[in-house]
Design a protein around this nucleic acid. Structure first.
Lengths: 205, 205
DNA sequence: CCTACCGATCGGTAGG
DNA sequence: CCTACCGATCGGTAGG
């Protein structure tokens, strides 16, 4: 492959990623319908027409982001590598790692909420079909190897785990700029995980 | 007051509510920016210009809905009246009642998500300031009168309760139209509440 | 990849 | 409460 063509491909990829990143930033701020193609073009540093060399439509940008930027690729290895001698330690550490990651990079949770709010979850079904088979085994393994679990239904265990993470992040979004923030204890994350752990794990007797 | 004027006021109120209901339905389907004033007018059964006799702007419709339709007025009395001899029974029943109500009438949860997605929570702070003082006492009373609570921080207890309800409803929205729905046990609600209860309440010894 | 343009639709208003 | 209209902006495209 001649160097010229190679560079052109590279540049095309770079521009495509710049468009995606600009779109993420704007979608997070104003939602999907609240963001215009002209805004995306401006933030990505090119003219409106230039976007259409990389994406057929606005909707295609959103779909590409949903697929390309899904956090499970980043999170799954981290969860598997989570340390912890006992079951309690492992699950607790995994929960804290996931929450910290998604709190510091909340774009994907917001994109998921945009999906629900503005697309009625129309992309969601296909996404779950692709991702669930990769996450579910983690919880199936948990159920099999750990003896002190109160919840032994893998799908339910997965749902409750994801739900707990979402509930922390979403209530955090709601509270962040309100008076309640002052009254929230500093160790809210630990307390939150603690509630979940006691809910899922049998008390040592 | 003459009957004529009285009827006019009544009619004005009716139209206003028709506009609000039409807007809720459309906001739920397409979000705020995805809904046009013309769509709202059509669904409410009047001309575009007619809306502006009742609301100054599109934004004012959304604000009015957020305030007028808030479910805490409906939910708070129900929670207070919830039966249950033991602490466990009371909290469990309250959770089930709230979840069932919000699942059958999910418009407010969706409006809340629209708030987060499309307004960055700009109306949220004022709303919390108004509502928190009315909900928080319920949890403060719980902490004071019940001895077997593991979580004795009222704000945290409230956050975890609301978070648990939200997490059930949002994961339900996500799963509803996917393959996962088939693998979800029928008693998911009870199991969900059970996890929370064991997380919050001390085991009887 | 940009310039210049398309028809459609947007939120909102004047006047009656 | 409706009709008719405003300027602005929308997603997208043709042509180079």
């Amino acid at each position: 492959m001649p160097a010229k063509l190679k560079d052109a491909l590279k540049k095309g990829e770079t521009t495509r990623l710049q468009i995606e990143d600009a779109a993420i930033e704007l979608f997070m701020e104003n939602g999907y319908h609240g963001t215009s193609m002209r805004q995306i073009a401006e933030h990505a540093g090119l003219a409106l027409g230039g976007i259409y060399n990389h994406f057929k439509s606005k909707d295609e940008i959103f779909e590409a982001i949903i697929v390309d930027k899904h956090p499970y690729k980043k999170l799954l290895p981290v969860i598997v590598d989570t340390e912890g001698e006992t079951m309690d330690e492992f699950l607790g550490n995994a929960a804290r790692v996931v929450i910290k990651e998604l709190t510091s990079q909340p774009y994907y949770v917001k994109l998921m909420l945009i999906e629900i709010v503005e697309f009625n979850g129309s992309h969601g079904a296909a996404l779950i079909k692709e991702i669930a088979p990769k996450i579910l085994p983690v919880f199936e393994k948990l159920v099999k190897t750990k003896k002190n679990l109160r919840i032994i239904h893998p799908v339910l265990l997965m749902r409750s785990f994801i739900g707990m993470v979402l509930s922390y992040i979403i209530t955090d979004m709601i509270i962040a700029n309100s008076v309640l923030n002052k009254f929230m204890p500093k160790n809210a994350l630990d307390a939150y995980v603690d509630i979940y752990m006691h809910g899922v794990i049998k008390e040592p007797v």
